[in-house]
Nucleic acid binder design. Structure first.
Length: 477
RNA sequence: CGGGCUGUAGCGCAGGGGCUAGCGCGCUCGGUUCGGGACCGAGAGGUCGGCGGUUCAAAUCCGCCCAGCCCGACCA
């Protein structure tokens, strides 16, 4: 008997860890805060990476690779940037057995080294826009780590773009935010809230930071991706200028944007249940598993049938035939459910006789009899239905746990009881934001991208002054 | 980094100064099984988290350290 997964109702954090370890997505590494991404987890990351990479290329970006080590002095060039990151830097001070003249930082993000290179590559408006992405690992020395959600080293992609005008940079920032939103919703089946971060929450060195925020099953928010408009901050720090069409010199306008292996944590905490992982079909490394059910005398027949089934499906779907005869069908059912495979085909003598098979859905547990003839088509339909159902389920949950509140008393009551997202009028001052955080632990996750006048006539829920925004508050990871 | 809990076989745990350190699951071999985590038989597997101390004797008592989890502060 395998270890049991702690039920969500008993201990949500432990449930999450149980899923990660038992579904063999990752394991703890010898170094504190680091994890090993196991084949199951890495296959998932590869799928996510491939889809995103395609979306980046479609929007005109090219991949490159910049080095892991960054001169200490580079980080210091942008004042806010160094202030934001210095507490969590890992620094190399020895190399080749000798103390280095200048310490080297293991990148926590690559703005500085990339902009030091952009200085060499950009002279004219003809060199713009420069649209580069890199897939890389980064290191941030976090105090408290959690598998996938916050690890000392993590994998991510970081896009770094350079533009001629402020408008173009802003357009790029939002374009990539919506690429992330599309990916989260259409592939991960995770509904997200897209919006802008407040001054307090924005990226160190950015003019504006935009975010997509997802709601986990415990109703806490998880920042799933960010896109930054860096203005001319890094261009000025690294002296990156270009000659405009009319011959003047100007600093280049910049963006950066990233998503990380944290998305795997978001995926788990959005869809999975007490039986284990649930993967959306569009990202599942294995979509279908075939489980033969036989007695000794029917073994040969069933296995042969399953083999034919496997051969006929493998061109169209990512399918596995579990013909291991060490485990019983029941054991296999549980094991594949634990690993989140969206669809299971059960084939026994009875089914073969009736010329049908049983399909079992991971999302609902429903078992469906399907005539063998129409199997290939039905699989496609059901996988699509699972994908849609997962999104709908998560969207309903998010909606049911999003509250519009105007009175601070109600705000506190909801944050302390059910939690969730709270949309409330806010005056725009950091002071109110920080007080609310102190008193309730809830932070502003995002404010609407355009001020559409929703806050007109409303009063800030904390200070009672005229509200400028309807902001979304939540406790977060 | 503060508060709490926990480290004994791969995993989950019991033992709590004395002679050969156990149990369940898993693992190996042989056989029977197989429609929701099968069963029988025979095996393998441990410097009891690490270092130091007390003692005739330490998994057990004491000190320090390390690791993991939970709750905070910091963050993708």
């Amino acid at each position: 008997m395998a270890e049991k997964i702690t039920p969500r109702s008993e201990n949500y954090s432990q449930w999450y860890i149980d899923i990660v370890l038992q579904a063999k997505l990752a394991d703890y590494a010898p170094v504190k805060g680091c994890m090993v991404i196991r084949p199951n987890g890495y296959a998932l990351w590869e799928k996510m990476r491939d889809v995103l990479d395609g979306m980046f290329k479609e929007t005109g970006h090219k991949n490159a690779y910049f080095p892991l080590l960054i001169p200490d002095s580079f980080l210091k060039r942008e004042a806010e940037h160094v202030e934001g990151f210095s507490p969590e830097l890992a620094v190399v001070t020895y190399g080749g057995g000798e103390e280095l003249d200048e310490p080297l930082i293991i990148r926590p993000t690559s703005e500085t080294i990339i902009w030091s290179m952009y200085k060499k590559w950009i002279q004219s408006y003809r060199d713009l826009p420069l649209l580069i992405n890199q897939w890389a690992n980064v290191v941030r020395w976090e105090k408290r780590t959690r598998l996938f959600l916050r690890t000392t080293e993590f994998l991510w992609q970081e896009g770094h773009t350079a533009h001629e005008t402020a408008d173009e940079a802003q357009e790029e920032t939002l374009k990539m935010l919506f690429v992330y939103k599309k990916f989260a919703e259409e592939y991960m089946a995770i509904p997200v809230l897209a919006g802008e971060k407040t001054e307090n929450e924005k990226f160190a060195g950015a003019v504006k930071t935009y975010t997509i925020e997802a709601m986990m099953q415990d109703r806490k928010a998880l920042q799933a991706g960010t896109s930054h408009n860096l203005g001319q901050n890094f261009a000025k720090a690294f002296d990156v200028t270009f000659q405009t069409k009319d011959g003047t010199l100007d600093y280049v306008w910049a963006t950066s944007w990233g998503v990380s292996t944290r998305l795997i944590g978001a995926l788990i905490m959005t869809h999975s249940d007490d039986k284990g992982l649930i993967l959306p079909p569009r990202l599942a490394p294995t979509e279908v598993v075939i489980i033969p059910i036989y007695k000794n005398k029917t073994k040969a027949t069933v296995l042969e049938y399953c083999n034919r089934l496997y051969q006929s499906l493998r061109g169209k779907y990512s399918v596995v035939l579990d013909d291991d005869d060490q485990n019983t069908p029941g054991w296999k059912f549980s094991e594949w459910e634990l690993q989140g495979i969206p669809l299971r085909i059960e084939v026994g003598p009875r089914d073969i006789e009736k010329e049908e098979v049983i399909l079992a859905r991971r999302d609902t547990g429903e078992k469906i009899s399907v005539p063998s003839k129409s199997l290939e088509q039905r699989i496609g339909e059901i996988l699509e239905d699972i994908q849609n159902n997962l999104f709908k389920r998560a969207a309903t949950f998010k909606q049911e746990n999003t509250h519009g509140i105007e009175a601070y008393e109600d705000f506190k009551r909801i944050i302390d009881s059910d939690g969730g997202f709270i949309q409330a009028p806010w005056c725009g001052s950091s002071e109110c934001e920080l007080r609310i955080k102190e008193e309730t632990k809830a932070t502003i996750r995002a404010i609407p991208i355009s001020n559409n006048g929703d806050a007109n006539g409303k009063k800030c829920l904390y200070c009672g002054e005229d509200a400028k925004f309807i902001a979304t508050f939540a406790k977060s990871y």
